[in-house]
């Protein structure tokens, strides 16, 4: 029972971190219609930024800044926002496909830097000893997991409320107007490119923050955490939840993560060990097919009642 509680806390924490990423994506895609296929890259930028700024000094890596965790989180959000703003600035005056291609490239390059710039990122071994909130109760796993869940839930709630407020603000209305009828919005004197860059940067900041929160929750990061599968999972979450709705993004994250973990443990229990890798790829096939079916039959998602973005 106690174990179950601890595991429940761990599961929900992970799901909420995915939910945070999905919230960032919802601002970019659901509200503004910007297609980001480099989510893993932006999450990684946030995770590595915070990890490098907060970890104690190590021999063969830049670091030893020893910042407090919260400062690391804020810096992660700021750095990721800058990276996203630059990506947006370079591509958003062009066709929307160019943003997609460039974000794909961002993810490739971030992965490359994480693997190869050993003196910055620790290379394939990653960054360890990232300070964890409530590290003093690390031995009591239930207490530790639940108090971390509290922190993560608080961060998620704060971001959720901020985004809800933002999307109802005049700023959010301009984004929706640009999405629905770009010419009309431009005719009203709103600069399409500048608003889109802002939305992309704010969405990026949320993704970076999510990456940082996860890095500090687990205490260790490595390049393998940020493969294209992550991008893909978050897209599935937002599409299941219904793009355009922040609540849908959170619900979608919890549902898809439950399906993912559930089907993973079913295959682990039923499939012989030598076939596990194959079963895992079948899991991704299933999610890919599901994403396509949702696009075909229910583009508004299962929880969102809002309209699908154009």
């Amino acid at each position: 029972m106690i174990d179950l509680l601890g595991y429940g806390g761990f599961f929900l924490s992970t799901a909420l971190i995915f939910g945070l990423i999905a919230l960032g994506l919802n601002l970019q895609w659901g509200l503004t219609g910007l297609f980001n296929v480099g989510i893993a890259g932006f999450v990684a930028i946030g995770a590595y930024s915070s990890a490098i700024l907060t970890t104690p000094e190590t021999v063969d890596r830049v670091g030893g800044f020893g910042w407090p965790i919260v400062a690391g989180w804020l810096a992660a959000a700021a750095i990721t926002a800058t990276a996203a703003a630059f990506t947006g600035y370079a591509t958003l005056r062009l066709k929307s496909d160019y943003l997609a291609i460039t974000t794909f490239g961002v993810a490739v390059v971030v992965q490359l830097v994480a693997l190869n710039a050993q003196s910055l990122t620790g290379g394939p071994f990653g960054v360890a000893f990232i300070p964890r909130p409530f590290a003093s109760v690390q031995d009591q796993s239930v207490l530790f997991n639940l108090s971390n869940l509290g922190v993560i839930a608080a961060v998620t709630l704060a971001v959720y409320l901020a985004l809800e407020r933002l999307s109802r603000s005049p700023w959010g209305r301009v984004l929706r107007a640009l999405r629905e009828d770009e010419r009309a919005a431009i005719a009203l004197g709103k600069s399409a490119q500048s608003y889109r860059v802002q939305a992309f940067a704010v969405g990026g900041a949320v993704m970076g923050l999510a990456g940082a929160v996860q890095a500090h929750f687990i205490g260790f990061i490595a390049p393998d955490n940020y493969l294209p599968t992550l991008t893909f999972q978050v897209w599935a979450m937002l599409m299941v939840g219904g793009s355009g709705s922040n609540r849908g993004a959170l619900l979608g994250a919890i549902v898809v993560w439950a399906i993912w973990v559930g089907s993973g443990s079913v295959t682990a229990a039923l499939v012989p060990a030598d076939l596990q890798a194959r079963a895992a790829s079948l899991q991704i096939v299933a999610i890919g097919v599901m994403l396509c079916l949702i696009l075909l039959w229910r583009p508004q998602g299962f929880f969102g009642s809002g309209r699908s973005p154009k």
């Binding site: 219609g33 297609f35 296929v37 929307s96 496909d97 997609a100 294209p228 599968t229 893909f232 897209w235 991704i284 096939v285 999610i287 890919g288 097919v289 994403l291 396509c292 696009l295 075909l296 583009p299």
Partner: peptide, 13 residues
């Protein structure tokens, strides 16, 4: 852009 997204899902599958 929905077609682009579908191609992304199809590619993963």
């Amino acid at each position: 852009i929905i077609v682009v997204m579908a191609s992304f899902g199809a590619s993963m599958a």
